[in-house]
């Protein structure tokens, strides 16, 4: 395209500036986590002492353990519920509650977190009054809350994957007499496995990251990692938060690289 190629250097510059904007703060987080000085932004020599301090902070370690368990449980529920939702929307043709389900899958993606958090808390309190469950707030209520918005994200990821899969394998299996449930588990599910892995990872990281909803629905003794970090950060920058951020970034990058490699092996580039 003639008109476009003339602008190629300009376009490359735009992308470059955009990525500098996106990554500069992240890079600085990592760099200053190795800073000797307590003043986070003044370089005082290389040191790993903030990592040592981080691993001595029992409050943070405890919160991290709670967060990891909540994230694993809620991501698993979210993937199951979200996959079923996506499957129903893409493969079931018209049914009565279709529009409602489709709305409930897109709305949580944009709904302000304060509203989701408040509304779920009020539901939990009323349910406790009516049927005695969930008794009190704690990990269980955070898991339910995170599974709900995670399911919406999972459904969107799986939906787009299901929409682009080739149907001929499923049809062939059914023509050969396999029962629908069997076809789903033997043909459909392996075909969308990469999407299931990405949606589990997505739901996991979203849960690990959520401050607002967890603050509403958590109870005493179930402070998640973001809740502890937020109360620390509100008082100002502290270098051990940088150390924590670096660990999170390293783990996430590792998980994404592994996931990308797995997916490329399963699905050769077309």
């Amino acid at each position: 395209m003639r008109g476009v190629s003339r602008h190629r250097p300009l376009l490359a510059l735009i992308v470059l500036l955009g990525f500098v904007f996106l990554y500069a703060p992240i890079v600085s987080l990592v760099v200053f986590s190795f800073n000797e000085s307590r003043l986070v932004t003044v370089w005082g020599g290389f040191s790993t002492k903030w990592y040592v301090e981080l691993f001595r902070d029992s409050q943070i370690l405890e919160a991290a353990w709670i967060s990891l368990r909540v994230a694993a449980a809620s991501a698993s529920i979210a993937t199951v519920v979200g996959t079923l939702g996506a499957f129903v929307l893409v493969r079931f043709g018209p049914f009565r509650s279709r529009a409602l389900l489709s709305m409930m899958i897109t709305a949580p993606l944009v709904m302000p977190e304060v509203i989701i958090g408040l509304s779920l808390l009020l539901l939990f309190i009323s349910m406790e009054g009516l049927i005695g469950w969930p008794s009190g707030r704690g990990m269980m209520t955070i898991i339910i809350a995170h599974a709900t918005f995670g399911a919406a994200y999972a459904a969107v990821v799986v939906q787009s994957r299901l929409a682009e899969t080739d149907l001929s394998l499923e049809e062939a299996a059914m023509d050969l007499g396999a029962r629908p449930v069997r076809v789903f588990f033997d043909v459909t599910l392996p075909g969308i496995m990469p999407a299931l892995i990405s949606s589990w990872l997505l739901a996991f990281t979203l849960s690990l990251d959520d401050l607002v909803i967890a603050s509403f629905v958590s109870g005493p003794g179930s402070s998640t990692l973001p809740m502890v970090v937020f109360s620390k950060v509100r008082l100002g920058v502290s270098p051990d938060v940088n150390a924590l951020a670096t660990i999170v970034i390293a783990l996430v990058s590792l998980a994404i690289i592994v996931a990308a490699l797995l997916m490329n092996r399963r699905r050769p580039m077309r």
Partner: peptide
């Protein structure tokens, strides 16, 4: 199969708004 996502999201996403 329809009921699982419908009930989950209905109970934990839609019904809470009624309580608000």
């Amino acid at each position: 199969v329809i009921a699982v996502p419908l009930l989950w999201l209905g109970l934990f996403f839609l019904v809470p708004f009624l309580y608000v």
